[in-house]
Write a protein that binds this DNA or RNA. Sequence first.
DNA 1: CGTGGCTCCTGGCGGC
DNA 2: TGCCGCCAGGAGCCAC
Length: 263
Amino acid sequence: MPELPEVESFGKYLDKTSLNKKIESVDVKSPELLQNIDISALKGNLEGNKFQFTKRHGKYLFVYLDNKNCLILHFGMTGNLKYYKKSEEEPSYGRFLVNFEDKSHLAFVDPRKFGKINLISKMEDFIKEKKLGPDAARMDFKSFIDIFKKRKGAIKPALMNQHIFAGIGNIYSDEILFQTCVHPKTPVNKLSDDKLKEIFMVTKEVLETAIDRNLKHEELPDSYIIPNRVKNGKCPNSDVKLETLKVGGRTAYFCPECQKEIL
DNA sequence: CGTGGCTCCTGGCGGC
DNA sequence: TGCCGCCAGGAGCCAC
């Protein structure tokens, strides 16, 4: 699930449910998710304090505490947040539970345990340490063009590379390439300036649309490839059967008619 | 620099 | 039904 638009939604969900409540206790059920901190230090930072506000960078959610430190959540492939009021509603695969004084709870749910939890005092330090590029929803055209003009490899892995721009993953990169009629293996240096500009514009638009629809719990537009990104799925424009390819180790779905390979 | 392969972990699905 | 292999919206590491 969690690429940039989903993480944006998780942030809004946390804002809506869990800010300014005193944290009574914390249950770390899967300590292996903790990266730069141990259980007691995490408890020491959270217990007795409150979540104040959230920020997002790429696929990371930064949850600021009133002690100025910041809890950092990464959702891996299957991470999610679940707020609930009664302990019998505790979800399966809750790896990390925050128990508030008002007896409600926020669970970090993650069946596959690819999620990661960090605690740090400065968001900027973390971004630097992880070498994350600018957030894809906030990138500007000039930096986009400067970076992509120098690239040589395939476009899809470049879009997914968190060191270039952060937030785009396998699913949304497929959408961006579908909307711009670009084959996922196209080398970046074979794309015209106009095409690069189009990719930039469409990236912004796709991310904004997905964020908007996520928040409203609405489906993506019918013209999108994502809802058709299933076995035997068809191109929403032509009814042609979608094909798959391994690109950068991930499965790309694309329309062989709309997205011709440039050789 | 860029790519491909492997790893972490768990559940769901299709095939035999 | 049971078992097996494969796949899954992430990302770090290593070898070429």
